[in-house]
Amino acid sequence: MSDILGKLSRLVTARPWVTIGVLLIVTVILAAGADRRVPIVDGTDLALLPQDGPIVEAIGEINDHFEASGDVRLVTLVFRGAALTPEGLSQMSGLLGGIAAEPDIAMLLTPTDAIFSPAHLIQAALGAENLDAVSQAEIDAVSAAPEIAPVMGALTGTDVDGTAVAIATVRLRNTQDERVADAERRIAEMATSDEGPLQVSSVSPIVVEDEYKQATEDGMAPLIGVALLLIAVLILLFLRTLSDLMLALVGLLLSIIWVVGLEGWLGPGALGVIGPPNALTALVPIIIIGLTVDYAIQVVSNYREQRATGVPVIEAVRSGMRHVVIPLMLAAVTTMVSL
């Protein structure tokens, strides 16, 4: 093994540009795998749990009892303002009518109880064709009727800031593809752009997911930037030269590219050797960042120590390759494989 490491170290120092070229080619190939990474799939974390354990059994029982609910996606529209007025109910009815008239949404509406709202309830109770001619007195009378008041109480209320709110629901068939996701996004667009006395917003699984992803992306970018800046400052304070800092940061960048690229090439989007990402595999790049910084400090420190004792540059590099760099690379590979 020592002879192999010695020959490899001599090859690297004798042909440095070849080594850099090989690293560049490998990096480009692996970077192409980043586009093949698949998103985290719900439920993949269950594979990490004991299949005969109580958690997996409990989740299975829940799925068995509530399997039918998975066939429906519920979109909740929140109307802020005086909804139980002729103007408010007209706006509500118009928006919901527009949603039902959208072809891409209409095809996904459930056969029964697809849309339910205070406007529909009052219109049905009054037997009116529309709400344009309904008076405030009629609305108040219907809302206070014993058989309607409990339902109306569940659909209306007051926000924490004292603003009156009302909700309406739209039930969509869960096709488990982009059609239902696009329908939910379209409903959200129509709600936020709707004009009238009421301020309308939409709450649905895809809207919550989109907002979560956006918030995560917006929050992670500055966090990663601050982390890299802090790492750079610490490395500079420890190594004290810009060249060593740049070498450490280049190694850090290459490590991230290699890990993300390998995950893409080996994942379901390419070779299918490994499964889809989960909460644990998402931590791998973070672990690699820590290991890379640690290894970079060890490599540079070893090189500086040898140079301080008068060892020539080539010999210092070869010695570092044999005794530090390659062993650390093997340690990093075994760490990635174990994860």
Rank of each mutant, 00 (worst) to 15 (best):
V18L: 15
S243L: 08
A316M: 02
E57S: 15
V26Q: 03
D244F: 10
L11H: 09
E184I: 10
R186Q: 12
L126N: 01
L330T: 11
V284R: 07
P268I: 08
N302H: 15
S135F: 03
G98P: 01
L49Q: 10
I55R: 08
G310K: 00
P86Y: 01
M92V: 04
L280R: 11
A145I: 00
E211H: 06
A308H: 07
S135K: 11
V260H: 12
D210P: 00
T216C: 05
T112N: 15
I59F: 13
E184L: 05
T163I: 05
I256C: 13
R322L: 09
V56Y: 11
T335P: 10
S135E: 11
A154C: 02
V78R: 11
P54M: 10
V250C: 00
R179S: 08
S201A: 09
M152Y: 00
T192F: 07
P54N: 03
S204K: 04
V72A: 09
L339Q: 13
A331Y: 02
I235C: 12
D177H: 05
D52E: 12
A47G: 15
V56G: 09
L11V: 06
G43L: 05
A215R: 12
G81H: 04
A282Y: 03
S201E: 07
A279V: 15
I206H: 13
E189G: 06
K7P: 01
G60P: 08
R15D: 05
L339A: 15
L271N: 06
V12R: 01
L239A: 09
T158L: 00
G219Y: 05
A331S: 12
L89C: 00
